[in-house]
């Protein structure tokens, strides 16, 4: 069965490594913080100026001066640090953040990503996404494999305006874990109960399928 958003977040959480500083985008990526595997220690960076971001506050303890990049009220963990936006993006641009997880509308087999603009619709802006994808060493994209019409969002070439070029290395969807290498998608794992055929059908880009494709363990 295809994964729901929580399933995608749980699978991405398995990619976390101790000692990493991690920036989580809005939406599914935010959920990753809830499923950090036992024994793994990471710090979350929020690009509006937090290292060591904690969970949402208890009711009544919200602080208007303490929000995350999604403008949600949050808390700080012990040892947290606060800084301005230029310093925050120095961390990002300077490759001090080890992993960026973000959502996408389209991903292409050359690593291009589109996630900020649909022509003809209201454009809200790219926020920090372009800075993040241009500099992160590891980018995991969390997304649905197809759109609500069933059309693939895992493409040979992006059709929407790009957020970044040749930057995505890994994609976790409701159907599969894919790696991007040598201008192709490589099938790494499939969601529990999802067949290789189903994944092939939902993938427009070139897909390399090994003889054995393990199921995700969630």
């Amino acid at each position: 069965m295809a994964l729901d958003k929580v399933g995608i977040a749980k699978r991405i959480a398995q990619e976390l490594r101790s000692g990493w500083y991690v920036n989580l985008g809005i939406g599914i990526p935010t959920l990753v913080a809830n499923y950090i595997p036992e024994g793994i220690e990471v710090e979350f960076q929020s690009e509006n100026g937090i290292l060591g971001m904690g969970p949402f506050p208890f009711e009544g303890e919200e602080d208007a001066d303490l929000i995350n990049a999604g403008k949600q009220t949050v808390t700080l963990r012990k040892g947290a640090a606060i800084f301005d936006s230029a310093t925050s993006f120095a961390m990002i641009r300077g490759k001090h953040v080890q992993l960026t997880v973000l959502g996408a509308m389209e991903v292409a087999q050359n690593g291009d990503i589109a996630n900020w603009k649909i022509p003809g619709k209201m454009v809200k802006g790219m926020g920090g996404a372009m800075d993040l994808v241009a500099s992160a060493e590891n980018i995991i994209v969390a997304m649905m494999h197809t759109n609500n019409k069933g059309e693939s969002k895992i493409l040979k070439k992006c059709t929407l305006p790009l957020t970044g070029v040749g930057c995505v290395t890994r994609v976790v969807t409701d159907l599969a874990v894919l790696a991007i290498k040598d201008n192709k998608f490589h099938l790494i794992e499939r969601a529990p109960g999802v067949t290789v055929e189903e994944i092939k059908k939902a993938t427009e880009g070139d897909l390399v399928v090994p003889d054995f494709v393990p199921e995700m363990k969630l």
Binding site: P55, F56, E59, E62, Q72
Partner: peptide, 12 residues
Amino acid sequence: EKRIEQRTVRKR
């Protein structure tokens, strides 16, 4: 006023 745009909390 310090208005909060997205009030997110967890239950005790």
